[in-house]
Write a protein that binds this DNA or RNA. Structure first.
Length: 556
RNA sequence: GCGCCUGUAGCUCAGCGGAUAGAGCGCAGCCCUGCGAAGGCUGAAGUCGUGAGUUCAAAUCUCACCAGGCGCACCA
């Protein structure tokens, strides 16, 4: 059992005992929280329960606290329970408990930190899902990192996670891209064909056209325009998806499913879902177009699903896509990570979910605020349309994938952030990302040295770990499962890097004060015990880094 | 105009209704002929945007205002 649960149970038991003896009156429903106080003088764990009960019990908090403390059950793991401050109960654990955790963590190995709070839940995370019309630009990196970080967390919490990229291969933008590709292809063939009115002016399209031209020997140049465009669709799409996939893989993001929008039409699901909505009265015809009647569900206005020109809107296929997620694949929870520029899409998607009879609690949309980038003291604006692309690839090559992941992961999705490129490059060695990785490398180094010296610490006695900084380090490490649960529950991946920094700090302080490998033969028992602690710390930091999708270097 | 998000140290950002608000960078110092100094220690630095309210307790919840971001398409 998790120590926090164990302590919560003990508090419940103590409270019930005090009430049974008539020392405390009964109280209504309440939640007992066990917190880890910031200040170590306040014990290892604390609860503010007496403060919360004061009102209903009509008693002073310190008196309630004293009654609970008096009735607190005996527990070998607990060293001390006391009333503190205005009515807190501070709990200090026995060293023996911390010592035993070192062995438990070593036994758990890379499984350490996993919990079962989301076990049995089938969760889909859809993120990035950028139009497959070119390479990812830096603005997309944040959603990519947040989405994948969340996926890792939910998986650690026991969920069955599907990481999914929705490929908009059936929309307008793809059409615009392919028309641009056609013009570039014709240019490669030597014809003076201008770019279409709306186009993707980026150089990469010309390069792709050149490649395709060389591959097929220019055969498409003789075809009628529409036929050539149709023929260019597939090679263009494949090239763009390859670019996107490579960039994401370099950010350590591997998807389980690449879901094609076009497949919704090929399978007939688009028509059946639209029919379903129409039968339920949610589709109305007006001004030559078909509308989803969001207003029936309390929204400000209706939204077009089929344009008067005949084509479907992005919204239309997204409705069908979400119907597929819930009704075909039966996800218990669907989390979409979108950029804040998709804000306007949220309310109508929620309305659509309601119309489809989907439990609104099962669809969570995370909007990550857009990132602005700063260089030479000036804010940069990126626009595919204006041919000013700084790609994810540029960013990775500039500051490194680990630093990119750390930077985006350590901030809440809703915070508006500015990415200072100069700072990221110049101060890279000072970046906290290296603080964590350095800690891991240092631990690896110690273990390496121990092996070289022929020390076998398997029989190390952890009860020799009594130094304040040893216990403090174990205390930090053991919090990982709680961090995973809380971060997964609140969908806040930024808690992991902050926690990891704290573990690294505890480690460095321990390292500074406690020599692990000694030249003195008499110190061998302590060395062996500390090697076990070093191993446990390495396991914890490596787990944090893996949750963050970052490398855990043995050397730096 | 309406809606959502944000405002915490010089900068970039954490912060779970609780105890003396934290970290990194930057700044002023100290510490390696001992396992990696990409480290440790000390210090300076804060009207938690402003004002009110709820509460035993507010950076955290509510309201108003100020400032910024985003959205309010037969774009995605």
């Amino acid at each position: 059992m998790r120590i926090t649960d164990q302590l919560r149970d003990a508090v419940v038991e103590a409270l019930a005992a005090a009430q049974g003896q008539g020392v405390l009156p009964s109280a209504g429903a309440f939640e007992i929280t066990i917190e880890q106080p910031r200040d170590q003088g306040h014990g290892d764990f604390a609860t503010s329960l007496p403060l919360k009960l004061a009102r209903t019990m009509k008693m002073a908090p310190p008196i309630i606290a004293a009654a609970i403390v008096d009735a607190f059950p005996d527990d070998a793991d607990v060293k001390n329970v006391e009333v503190a401050g205005p009515g807190f109960i501070n709990i200090t654990l026995a060293d023996a408990w911390f010592q035993s955790q070192v062995e438990a963590i070593r036994a758990a190995g890379s499984e350490f930190g996993n919990t079962d709070s989301k076990t049995g839940q089938k969760i889909q995370l859809e993120f990035v899902s950028v139009n497959p019309t070119g390479p990812l630009h830096v603005g997309h990196a944040r959603g990519a990192v947040i989405g994948s970080g969340l996926a890792n967390l939910l998986e650690a919490a026991g969920a069955d996670v599907t990481r999914e990229y929705y490929v908009n291969d059936a929309g307008n933008q793809m059409r615009v891209y392919t028309e641009t590709l056609y013009s570039r292809y014709m240019q490669a063939a030597g014809y003076d064909v201008p770019l279409p009115e709306t186009s993707y002016p980026g150089e990469y399209v010309a390069e792709q056209a050149q490649q395709i031209f060389e591959d097929d020997g220019g055969a498409l140049a003789d075809l009628p325009k529409e036929e050539a465009i149709a023929a260019l669709y597939k090679p263009g799409l494949e090239r763009n998806l390859a670019l996107i996939k490579t960039d994401l893989e370099d950010l350590n993001i591997i998807y389980d499913v690449w879901f094609s929008e076009q497949s919704l039409f090929d399978s007939g699901r688009f028509d059946t879902t639209m029919k379903e909505l129409e039968d339920d009265g949610f589709i109305v015809d007006r001004d030559g177009a078909r509308w989803f009647a969001s207003t029936q569900l309390g929204e400000d206005k209706d939204n077009v699903v089929i344009r008067s020109s005949g084509g479907h809107t992005y919204f239309a296929s997204d409705i069908v896509y979400h119907a597929e997620k819930f009704k075909e694949r039966n996800f218990d929870q669907v989390i979409d990570v979108w950029g804040a520029d998709h804000h306007g899409h949220v309310a109508r998607m929620n309305a659509a979910a309601k119309a489809l009879g989907i439990d609104p609690d099962k669809l969570t949309i995370i909007l990550n605020q857009l990132v602005s980038f700063k260089e030479d003291g000036e804010s940069l604006r990126f626009s595919k349309r204006k041919n000013v692309i700084v790609t994810v690839r540029d960013l990775i090559e500039d500051v490194g994938a680990d630093a990119v992941r750390y930077t985006f992961l350590s901030r809440g999705a809703e915070s508006q952030m500015e990415f200072d490129l100069d700072l990221a490059r110049k101060q890279s060695p000072e970046n906290p990302v290296y603080y964590i990785q350095y800690a891991h490398a240092r631990l690896s180094g110690i273990l390496r040295n121990a092996v070289e010296k022929g020390i076998d610490w398997a029989d190390g006695d952890v009860s020799l770990l009594t130094h304040d900084l040893e216990i403090a380090l174990v205390r930090q490490i053991t919090a990982l499962p709680d961090v995973v649960d809380r971060a997964a529950d609140r969908l806040e991946p930024q808690q992991v890097p902050h926690y990891a920094t704290e573990v690294a700090r505890a480690l460095q302080r321990f390292y500074d004060a406690c020599r692990v490998i000694s030249e003195n033969e008499d110190d061998l028992p302590v060395s062996k015990a500390r090697l076990k602690l070093v191993e446990a710390a390495q396991i914890a930091i490596a787990r944090c880094l893996s949750l963050m999708g970052m490398n855990a270097p043995e050397r730096m």
